[in-house]
């Protein structure tokens, strides 16, 4: 029930931000569509702690700021590889262990790995990811483990 209310509030905020009109007729139409969407989501049985992650706190914001800096650094590294006259590639597949407790943390971790250029999550297995790395520098197990520890931290602060 809490998740359904959260979904409804989020959809209402989205509707108001996207429309920008505050007339009674349009507001009531928006309310009808929000209620219909919440009902359909409930009927599809997708309203739970995974699709509406209310338990993720403010820690996610500082994590995203940190992630943006990491993405910028990784972009520059890949740019140097692409623009160097003789491209030195050393592609490899590495197995990265994960210790996140639930699926949402694993999704955040896998998406963060994919988001930084140079590493891409290829396959998700129980307890580990298969990660494709472009160069030797990108295949840095310690940096990946550091990212995983940060994801576990924001998950643990719930």
């Amino acid at each position: 029930m809490l998740h359904a209310i959260g979904l409804g509030l989020g959809l209402s905020a989205l509707w108001l931000l996207l429309s920008g009109f505050f007339e009674p007729l349009l507001l009531s139409l928006g309310l009808v569509s929000v209620v219909l969407c919440v009902y359909l989501a409930h009927r599809m049985d997708v309203v739970d702690h995974e699709t509406i992650p209310l338990h993720i706190g403010y820690g996610i914001i500082s994590y995203f700021v940190w992630l943006t800096v990491e993405v910028a650094k990784a972009n520059w590294a890949v740019t140097k590889v692409i623009l160097s006259p003789k491209m030195v590639l050393n592609q490899s597949f590495i197995t990265v262990p994960t210790d996140q407790s639930d699926d949402l943390g694993r999704v955040i971790y896998a998406n963060s790995i994919t988001l930084t250029p140079g590493t891409i999550t290829v396959e998700i297995e129980p307890g580990s990811f298969l990660v494709h790395a472009l160069t030797d520098d990108a295949a840095d197990m310690e940096a990946l483990a550091d990212m995983g520890a940060r994801v576990t931290a924001i998950e643990g602060n719930a």
Binding site: V71, A72, N75, V78, T79, I82, M87, L89, Q91, T114, L115, T116, P117, G118, I120, H132, L134
Partner: peptide, 18 residues
């Protein structure tokens, strides 16, 4: 420029992110 599909994924990653 990148030689094969797996390397091109990272080139597309540069376009998609930063």
């Amino acid at each position: 420029r990148l030689p094969d599909f797996w390397a091109r994924l990272h080139g597309a990653g540069v376009v998609d992110t930063l």
